[in-house]
């Protein structure tokens, strides 16, 4: 008997499984999967300006920084200002999805490709953002590779205000609706990477970014 059969057989025996109760249980499982019932939720005001306000507050509480611009076209210039302000090189690896923006005029040299160890700045968009906890939801795909938000020391994310949802439940619902099935990599990101392993003292920049900067697009 394979280990699979052995383990399942023991579980079935312990549960007193037979054909009749299996049919009932299978129907129950289908009901649960179709119902997608939610647990109790903290109150999050779903009005647009409230969502923006909450995302900003919670992101800052998670040590991210936030800048707001009116249109998507203004993002490259805002990013250039941020990088210069920190004394960082105006050079970045970006999601291929963002290659249409006018980076040259803003003076940012960008490459749309897979992230490498030497990349200091990574620029991404996001699938959506969760106001409840100040969290970005990134979905990996051909034109939005996952490592760009991970390898560089600085991660900059462009977040359209229209893509802010109250909770994780709405984020998943949006993924089901727009993508059909979950992409290979869904990453919820809340601020820079951190560790508290040594004497429970929080240090920012463990293995991922030291800095996460949000460019919030009010008109998109």
């Amino acid at each position: 008997m394979s280990s699979r059969e052995d383990i399942l057989a023991r579980v079935r025996q312990k549960l007193g499984r037979n054909e009749t109760n299996a049919a009932v249980a299978r129907a129950e499982i289908d009901t649960v999967l179709a119902a997608k019932a939610q647990g109790p939720r903290p109150q999050v005001d779903a009005e647009k300006s409230a969502l923006v306000g909450r995302l900003i507050d919670k992101s800052r509480a998670y040590s991210s920084t936030v800048d707001q611009v009116a249109t998507r076209g203004e993002a490259p210039a805002a990013i250039a200002r941020y990088l210069i302000g920190l004394g960082l090189p105006a050079q970045a690896v970006i999601w291929p999805k963002l290659a249409d923006l006018d980076w040259a005029s803003a003076g940012v040299i960008v490459q749309a490709r897979a992230a490498q160890d030497a990349d200091l700045v990574g620029i991404t968009g996001c699938f959506c953002a969760v106001a409840e906890t100040g969290t970005l939801m990134l979905c990996g795909s051909v034109d939005s590779p996952a490592a760009i938000s991970l390898l560089p020391e600085t991660h900059i994310a462009i977040v359209p205000a229209s893509r802010i949802v109250p909770g994780m439940e709405e984020a998943f619902a949006l993924a089901r609706k727009e993508l059909g099935q979950l992409p290979r990599a869904v990453n919820f990101i809340s601020g820079p990477s951190r560790t508290g392993d040594i004497e429970q003292t929080i240090v920012l920049g463990a293995h991922g970014p030291y800095r996460v900067h949000l460019i919030l697009i009010d008109g998109a």
Partner: peptide, 24 residues
């Protein structure tokens, strides 16, 4: 666990990378 509202990274991973994907 750590008294955080959420952990920095919550990853939901499904299946293998597509042929043309850059990572995974």
């Amino acid at each position: 666990a750590t008294g955080q509202s959420i952990s920095n990274y919550v990853s939901v991973l499904t299946g293998t990378k597509a042929a043309d994907e850059l990572d995974g």
